[in-house]
Design a protein around this nucleic acid. Structure first.
Lengths: 203, 203
DNA sequence: GGAATTTAGAACTAAATGTTTCAAAATGCT
DNA sequence: AGCATTTTGAAACATTTAGTTCTAAATTCC
């Protein structure tokens, strides 16, 4: 067996940094931001209090790291859902289904860190990050529509901007319903119907 | 001048109960639930600390009262927007515009107590109330669609249930965007387009 | 094996927060 | 005017919470 890389000098950590961050995400997802105490994080992350401060910093810093990691992972999965399928309809349905699946993950509090928790955090950096992330999501969906125009799947006068907003609004609605406890099965069906809706042609 | 009703015996209150509740709503809207301290409420409601406890009870009780009042008022306005106009299209547009206007009120933190704040409150009674309120909103929109069927405005096989979910999801999306700082003007335009979207006929 | 280094766990401090208490103030009643 | 009643404001109290410190434990390097 290899000694993987150089092991640092002192006592080894009893936790994995990425894993601890993911656990922090769970805590924030279930209790919001202000509802979370350091004790909650200590308990939920499996990291001792002093280690928590020395490795991650305070609650705000932990939240920011968790939020960035969450956004990156979710953004990547969303992009995959959007750009893997061949047809626009499948792309949109996949995108919306992904929103539902992400918001109803087994063993996690239903909802979404970006949509349900972060907007209430009273912090300029969080707000800016949110704005950028939302804009990024919008750009992603728009690009998929433009791709569909260039392949001729939809006409060139397709209202890309309006339909993109609507896809995102529908996904927000699905996510909020997930947070309020609506079962995944129902939401997945609604995701399909939402995908159909935004592709209806104008009379 | 009339002595309006019987004035109670002791020292008169320095605040109006309904007004104080509305101010509490503002506080909760801008800071969420867990983010609000009693001091915030004392300052924001203009009610002294002991009066606050004796008249309203603790934070949870204040929130519940504020939430119920908020839901009632918003529900009434939504119903009016939905059932006043003659055409279905105007009803839906009015409903969605109302969601936007309510979420972007001048001098209030953008967002919605029911959609953005209450779902994060870790309380069984709040959760139950939310579920009921959401179901009530859904029923309202569905009724408007059924009315439109009976007047022949839409065909009798119109997918009432699906479209109602979608109207509500779209309004949730608009509301969440309001909370994130999107300007009212943009959202009002999107509300109109959303109303058009859900009335597109199937091919 | 022992010194140096890093982490872990428990205890500690200071600040904040929620809730109650109490005397003073403002009103109606007689 | 004086008494009963209710609200008010300040302060007191207890609890929770954030953040630090200190000692013991686990590891590498020599």
């Amino acid at each position: 067996m290899f000694q993987n890389a150089e092991r640092p000098r002192g006592r080894p950590r009893s936790f994995d940094e990425k894993d601890a961050l993911e656990k922090a995400t769970r805590v924030f997802r279930s209790k919001g931001y202000d509802g979370v105490t350091i004790d909650d994080l200590v308990a939920g992350m499996g990291v001792g209090r002093p280690s928590l401060y020395s490795v991650f910093g305070d609650k705000r810093a932990i939240f920011l790291r968790a939020l960035r990691a969450y956004a990156e992972a979710k953004g990547a999965r969303a992009a995959k859902a959007l750009f893997s399928p061949a047809t626009l309809r499948d792309s949109l349905a996949g995108f919306l289904r992904h929103a539902v699946e992400s918001a109803t993950e087994e063993g996690q509090a239903p909802g979404c860190l970006l949509l349900c928790v972060a907007p209430l955090v009273d912090d300029a950096e969080v707000r800016q990050f949110l704005k950028d992330t939302v804009a990024g999501g919008m750009a992603l969906v728009e690009r998929r529509f433009y791709d569909a125009i260039s392949t001729g799947e939809v006409p060139s006068d397709f209202p890309v901007s309006a339909r993109s907003s609507q896809v995102l609004d529908l996904s927000r609605g699905l996510t909020m319903r997930a947070q309020m406890g609506m079962p995944r099965k129902t939401l997945l069906k609604d995701a399909e119907e939402a995908a159909d809706l935004v592709l209806l042609s104008r009379r």
